[in-house]
Design a binder for these strands. Structure first.
Length: 529
RNA sequence: GGGCCGCUAGCUCAGCGGUAGAGCACCUGACUUUUAAUCAGAUGGUCGCUGGUUCGAUCCCAGCGCGGCCCA
């Protein structure tokens, strides 16, 4: 037990740390700045960015001095010299440590370094015989100890469970993982830039994550409790009702990028907490949203795609293979997905009817799907289970999810949803069974959901009451009554369009990540004893 | 919720009824421009957990745990 444990690499590393302390080296120093008080140390990334393509002769004549720091990832050791590869988490640079270039003390430190330790070095840049950009170190500073061995340098860490549970390790040894999260940050920054462009003028706001009534979506919430107020609260399933209250309050263009929480199963496309962009646009309708969405996603894809192609390694094929010079195209799962607009628009019942007809070999009309009896028959023939409480709208949606959703690869707007499944959307003037609502599908996933907002408080109350009946019928995802929201509508919500965009799924497509867990730094995992 | 697959050294993986192997890492030695450095040698394991079958189980069986993929 203790013996075999003490014999392991951890003990060896601890012994090296003790030896450093014996040499009088501060083993947990407070900072690294380099010897020159007038200059900050360079990051490894900055060095590589600045000199990654400078040739050796130019480096010799310029005599570029640097102080830089990073984590040791590789050591190649010779008798009186060694090469270290250090990383700042983004990029790597080689450091050449030779006995005759360092003080005895510093070379003694070098001998006690383990892979994973943090070090600071100073020296001049040069290129080796093999043309590798390298710091010729004349000073070496120990910065922090890595007490545990790192995963293998060649295969890295491939076990997905460990990658999710110990993301820090994944980030240390798998550069592609870091690149995914850099891309994620770029996606979000690009969205903010797009919406806040003065031409569009959206204002970022924050609304409650803890809500007394979990509204704005059809989903089961997490419950929590406020002790001092002795009050149950729900983690929000959507910010929608609060954002629309702000529009009532005169904030005509608002958006929020933040977490939603839904008490549902986990899958490659679902994490209980996930990030949504939600935005509201007064005086516009769902057609305007579709156009804006095309521009938004095209812009984001353009901003991020070139970066992901080389950094994430999401280049399994030529993303421009199908369309010439499509800079808004990415490869996802080996197939090219282009975010260049405009996207096809298909009506939900039309899509369902066509798919059902093709599958069954009999005509299925839109009106079949508006009638509960015939819709249920179609579902039964397709093997899609229906619940007695489900109306024709819910049944159509079930069929859509089963038949159509997985088959959609390129961005496609599916629009004109049944009113029954859309309690917050505005009806079409010519068709009260249908609302002005769309969902955007990409690569078999729902990426966005938007609609013209229902702003008639009387109709809103009726919709909530219909939802309450569904709830009494056992539908735990049915919407709850929110009296204050109805009151807000009574003060007058202008004609408004609103939309939610799933950021995690968007990042999945843009970074060619097969699982939502690959794009969330710390995805939910079961506790492991 | 169901089906299939996986869990063996720090990491990546072999092994599959007779008391456990490789590569990398680690340790010792050689080596002052290497880059999966090289060369020589040595160390390291409750084979996910619990039970069963067996003279004997990492291996077969059952249950459980965690994860992956597919389906609902």
């Amino acid at each position: 037990m203790a013996d075999s444990q003490e014999n392991d690499q951890r003990a060896q590393r601890r012994a090296n740390l003790a030896s450093l302390a014996d040499l009088g080296v501060p083993v947990y120093p407070h900072a690294f700045r380099g010897a020159d008080p007038d200059r900050d140390a360079d990051t490894v990334s900055a060095l590589v960015d600045a000199h990654g393509s400078t040739c050796g002769a130019d480096l010799e004549s310029a005599q570029v001095r640097t102080a830089t720091a990073g984590r040791i990832l590789i050591v190649r050791s010779f008798g009186k010299a060694r090469f270290l590869v250090i990383s700042d988490g983004r990029k790597r640079i080689q450091v050449y440590v030779r006995k005759d270039a360092l003080s005895d003390g510093d070379f003694g430190v070098a001998a006690l370094l383990d892979i994973g330790d943090h070090v600071g070095v100073e020296g001049r840049l040069f290129r080796t015989r093999t043309d590798e950009l390298t710091v010729w170190a004349d000073r070496l500073e120990f910065l922090a100890k890595c007490h545990l061995p790192l995963p293998e340098k060649w295969h890295g860490l491939t076990d997905v469970e460990t990658r999710y549970r110990r993301r820090y390790l994944d980030l240390i040894v798998n550069p592609g993982s870091r690149a995914v999260f850099e891309a994620r940050a770029r996606v979000i920054a690009s969205i903010r830039r797009f919406l806040e462009d003065p031409e569009r003028g959206f204002l970022e706001v924050e609304t409650p994550m803890m809500q007394p009534i979990a509204g704005g979506a059809l989903a089961r919430p997490f419950v929590t409790h406020h002790n001092a107020q002795d009050m149950d609260l729900y983690l929000r399933i959507a910010p929608e009702l609060y954002l629309k209250r702000l529009v009532v309050g005169g904030m005509e263009r608002v958006y929020e990028i933040n977490r939603n929480f839904r008490n549902e199963g986990v899958s490659t496309r679902h994490n209980p907490e996930f990030t949504m962009l939600e935005f509201y646009w007064a005086y516009r309708d769902y057609r305007d949203l579709m156009t804006l969405t095309e521009r938004l996603l095209e812009t984001v894809a353009r901003d991020v795609a070139p970066f992901t192609r080389d950094a994430v390694g999401a280049d399994g094929g030529d993303p421009r293979g199908s369309g010439a010079d499509d800079d808004a195209a990415v490869v996802f799962g080996g197939r090219t997905v282009s975010f260049r607009g405009p996207y096809p628009r298909v009506k939900l019942r039309q899509a369902v009817g066509d798919a059902a007809a093709e599958r069954l070999g009999i005509p299925v009309s839109e009106s079949d799907l508006r009638n509960r009896g015939t819709a249920a028959q179609v579902a039964a023939r397709l093997g899609v289970e229906t619940v007695p409480g489900h109306g024709p709208g819910k049944i159509s949606l079930e069929i859509f999810e089963r038949l159509c959703e997985p088959a959609i690869l390129q961005p496609t707007f599916v629009h004109d949803f049944p009113t029954e499944v859309s309690p917050l959307s505005k009806q079409r003037d010519d068709d009260p069974d249908t609302v002005e609502r769309f969902e955007l599908y990409v690569a078999g996933m729902e990426l966005a959901n938007g609609f013209s907002e229902l702003n008639d408080p009387v109709e809103q109350r009726r919709r909530f009451e219909a939802q309450l009946r569904d709830r009494q019928g056992g539908d735990l995802e049915a919407h709850r009554m929110d009296e204050d929201y109805v009151r807000a509508l009574e003060y007058g919500l202008p004609p408004t369009a609103g939309e939610g965009v799933g950021i995690d799924r968007l990042v999945m497509v843009l970074t060619d990540s097969p699982s939502i867990r690959d794009v969330i730094l710390f995805p939910l995992m079961r506790a492991k004893s």
